[in-house]
Nucleic acid binder design. Structure first.
Length: 819
DNA sequence: GTAGGGTTAG
């Protein structure tokens, strides 16, 4: 080939590959277009370059064509060079468009238009606008009809385009259908729908594109009703909907949960033969996925003749978001088998699938894949998905590391990390991250932030901080958001303010089960079983459909209040009247309900008749009941069964060792403890916290390092003496160490809950309520002592432990010693 | 020779 040496000196050939590449290009184009290679060698006279452009389907081929133009000198032809600008843009290589553009010495309007639209097509809106202004400043040419649509599109993504609109008016292009559609679309993107509608109404001639611009304007603002109105006007006008109309409308139907309209449009699609358009099918898949009708989504997907990456992403996301991670993963594998390259959205779904499948090993591969593609650095959404994946898998440290490495962190990155800590039981870390976001960034918290940080405050019992958020939320009316509202209800309920929780409950929208579940559960943990049942009945009156969570809240409320008969009835009703299949959580509540009430045999028989395999939580509930009611035989059986299915949860070892200690079987205690030690399990240390003077203080058992330590122990000595004079006898069965009597009394008085109460007494005004939180269950002797303390100090003492609330007042506890 | 209106996201 003589061509190659001739090309060597030319700048453009830096990009050109080997001799073989030239050969393959030549054979490709000459075969297709029947251009003899001789023709090129005879001064190119026989080659029609215009015909070569459509053959260039890759950047590589485009570069080869470019080289041909350079070598043959035809690059000087202004038409052909401008076509190259467009070609590179279509092949998604805008930097080559620009290089080619720069090499054109005398640019005409077509050249400029091509460059601007090349930028727009590749999403570089800022550069498109800059190029347009550069054109206005440096060229004598006037913009034409073709100039404005891309420029207006760029404006819709960046700045107010009113200035550009003035230009359009000055030049008299407003009546052009293409320009008008662009204006309508641009104003819609700014939410200026009135202006958009006015322009639309004033159009003398409307084509389908004009209608589509108006409809998509409403759709992109989530204005479903108006979009459907325009659709009806359009049809009355006798204009047929095309695939563009339909795909916009399907999306807005999905967003607004309008299943009826969505299905009617689907019928239209079938009747008018639009079901082979890829955009339409993709929109249908997404719509059915949002409606949770995955089968319909699947049917649409199956009958598609051509599928693109969006089709695959949509069907994968459909299964992923409807809790079918296994099927979703199968589709991902099929996508690969079909040779479709994943994009960042594929990986977004994949990360969530892996989290749902709890597949630690695959999580590393997903992370690696994303890292290699550079998406972690370019695309914050992908980064957030990785953080979320690790957090959901419990690898919160990996989540943190990925988070730290993100070059740009948006509000969702922060929310994801906060939620990650909160859901892994690390509430104070969650709060720390929230504080860090507040102090070190300008990021404005949103609904998601409140939903992530409020549960952390609930967990810590940080009422003051929670209330501060309530204040902020009030300002922008976000408390009307059902999720934020529910988190606040939960926070007040879990911080002991049941009245405030109720007040709020009546303010938030309660059409869905979400706030009902929260308020029922709050009454349950406060031991107000009757009120929980009443709320459930109100829920039915207001025609809110209970879900599986409602019944968990309801059954556990029955269990806390000893409402055995009611619990049984609702367990039955749940299956028969509401068609909800009980999950292990429901079975656990029932075992707890029977066990706590002392019906150990019933609890055991219930487990035997369960249609599913009992897990550790079920045996744990039975073991807990055995502890309260002291059944040694069943205890042995329950613990054996428990450790067959679960050996990692330290709580169960502690429970069993406590039972042995209760019976004074110290060998048993030692055995269980060494068993746990061998497994490398360490007991969760018990702590209690109290929020006083805008600050949360945390006490561990036997704490000596608190600044008010001396005063606290003095107060406790004083209280113990007073309690004894009123008839208090320490119950040493709650001392879980084999030590002397003196030592036992000291151990009881230095339990974390007592330190916190004593601190509350000395640091808050007399007779004000004291609110305490304990991470484990409150000790029985402390429970008894707190009754006396409430009488002596004339204070209401509210203790929330891992299980429920205890309200102490005038020497009695709201739980009636039943917990 | 060029242009508008469309599908997937935490």
């Amino acid at each position: 080939m003589r061509l190659v040496p001739a090309c060597k000196n030319l700048q453009i050939f830096k990009f050109l590959p080997s001799v073989q590449a030239h050969c393959s290009f030549f054979s490709a184009v000459t075969n297709t277009l029947q251009v003899p290679v001789d023709g090129f060698e005879n001064e190119n006279k026989k080659i029609d370059f215009d015909l070569l452009f459509p053959s260039c389907t890759t950047v590589h081929l485009a570069k080869c064509l470019h080289s041909l133009l350079v070598v043959s000198g035809r690059v000087k032809n202004i038409f052909l060079s401008a076509k190259l600008v467009n070609l590179y843009a279509y092949l998604d290589d805008v930097s080559f468009s620009r290089r080619t553009f720069d090499q054109i010495p005398k640019k005409d309007i077509y050249t400029w238009n091509s460059m601007v639209s090349a930028y727009v097509r590749s999403g570089r809106f800022q550069q498109a606008i800059e190029c347009f202004y550069h054109f206005l400043l440096t060229s004598d040419l006037r913009p034409d009809f073709y100039t404005f649509p891309p420029v207006l599109k760029a404006c819709g993504n960046l700045v107010d385009g009113k200035k550009i609109h003035c230009w359009v008016q000055k030049l008299g292009f407003e009546s052009d259908v293409f320009v008008a559609a662009s204006l309508i679309h641009m104003y819609s993107r700014f939410g200026l729908l009135v202006i958009a509608r006015k322009l639309f109404n004033e159009m003398p001639i409307r084509d389908t594109g004009s209608w589509n611009a108006m409809i998509s304007g409403f759709c992109q603002n989530g204005n479903a009703a108006e979009a459907l109105d325009v659709m009806n006007e359009m049809r009355l006008d006798g204009v047929k909907m095309d695939p563009v109309t339909v795909s916009s409308l399907l999306t807005v139907c999905a967003q607004s949960n309008d299943m009826l309209s969505g299905m009617l449009i689907h019928l239209y699609v079938i009747k008018h033969g639009l079901e082979f358009d890829v955009f339409v099918c993709n929109a249908l898949i997404n719509m059915y996925a949002k409606f949770c009708i995955v089968d319909h989504a699947r049917k649409v997907f199956d009958q598609m003749k051509i599928r693109d990456v969006v089709s695959w992403n949509s069907i994968i996301a459909a299964y992923e978001q409807n809790d079918e991670p296994i099927t979703a993963f199968e589709f991902y594998k099929k996508m690969q088998q079909n040779g479709i390259q994943s994009d960042s959205l594929t990986l977004l779904s994949l990360a969530s699938i892996i989290a749902q499948l709890t597949d630690d090993q695959k999580s590393r591969s997903v992370h690696g894949f994303i890292l290699r593609r550079g998406w972690l650095m370019q695309d914050v959404a992908t980064g957030n998905a990785v953080v979320d994946m690790y957090a959901k898998l419990g690898s919160i440290d990996s989540a943190r590391t990925v988070f730290e490495g993100l070059p740009v962190k948006d509000v969702i990155s922060w929310n994801t990390l906060i939620t990650g800590y909160a859901q892994n039981g690390l509430a104070s870390e969650a709060v720390e991250v929230y504080d860090m976001m507040k102090e070190r960034t300008d990021i404005i918290p949103n609904q998601g932030t409140w939903v992530s940080v409020l549960p952390a405050y609930s967990h810590l019992g940080a009422l003051q901080q929670g209330m501060r958020i309530h204040g902020r939320v009030m300002k922008n009316c976000l408390y009307m958001d059902v999720f934020v509202g529910t988190c606040l209800i939960d926070m007040y309920g879990k911080c002991g303010r049941l009245d405030d929780a109720m007040l709020l409950f009546y303010k938030v929208p309660r059409k869905s089960s979400v706030p009902w579940n929260a308020i029922i559960s709050c009454h349950g943990i406060h031991g107000h079983g009757d009120k929980a049942l009443e709320l459930f009945k109100n829920m039915l009156v207001e025609e809110v459909k209970p879900d599986h969570v409602t019944f968990v809240s309801l059954l556990s409320a029955c269990s806390h209040s000893g409402l055995v008969g009611e619990g049984q009835r609702y367990f039955d009703a749940m299956q028969k009247e509401y068609g909800i299949k009980p999950s292990l959580k429901h079975y656990g509540c029932m075992v707890d309900l029977f066990g706590r009430a002392g019906h150990l045999e019933m609890a055991y028989n219930f487990i035997k008749n369960m249609p599913v395999q009992p897990d550790a939580s079920i045996w744990g509930a039975l073991l807990g009941a055995c502890r309260i009611h002291g059944n040694v035989e069943l205890c042995k059986f329950a613990s054996d069964s428990l450790f067959e299915v679960e050996t990692e949860n330290v709580g169960y070892y502690v429970l069993l060792s406590n039972i042995y200690a209760n019976f004074g079987k110290w060998e048993g205690v030692d055995k269980v403890r060494s068993l746990a030690r061998d497994k490398g399990l360490r007991k969760t240390p018990g702590w209690s916290s109290i929020e006083a003077n805008n600050k949360v203080d945390v006490f561990y058992t036997g704490n000596q390092s608190h600044p008010n330590c001396e005063e606290i122990y003095t107060e406790l000595r004083f209280l113990t003496a007073k309690m004894k004079s009123l008839g208090y006898i320490p119950d040493y069965s709650f001392v879980l160490q084999d030590v002397e009597e003196d030592e036992k009394e000291h151990i009881l008085t230095s339990h974390s809950e007592r330190l916190a109460i004593a601190f509350g007494i000395i640091s808050t005004p007399p007779k004000t309520p004291i609110r305490i939180f304990k991470n484990l269950r409150v000790c029985g002797d402390c429970h008894n002592a707190t009754k006396y303390i409430s009488k002596i100090t004339e204070r209401e003492i509210i203790v929330r432990d891992a299980n429920r609330f205890h309200h102490f007042k005038d020497g009695i506890c709201s739980c009636g010693d039943y917990w």
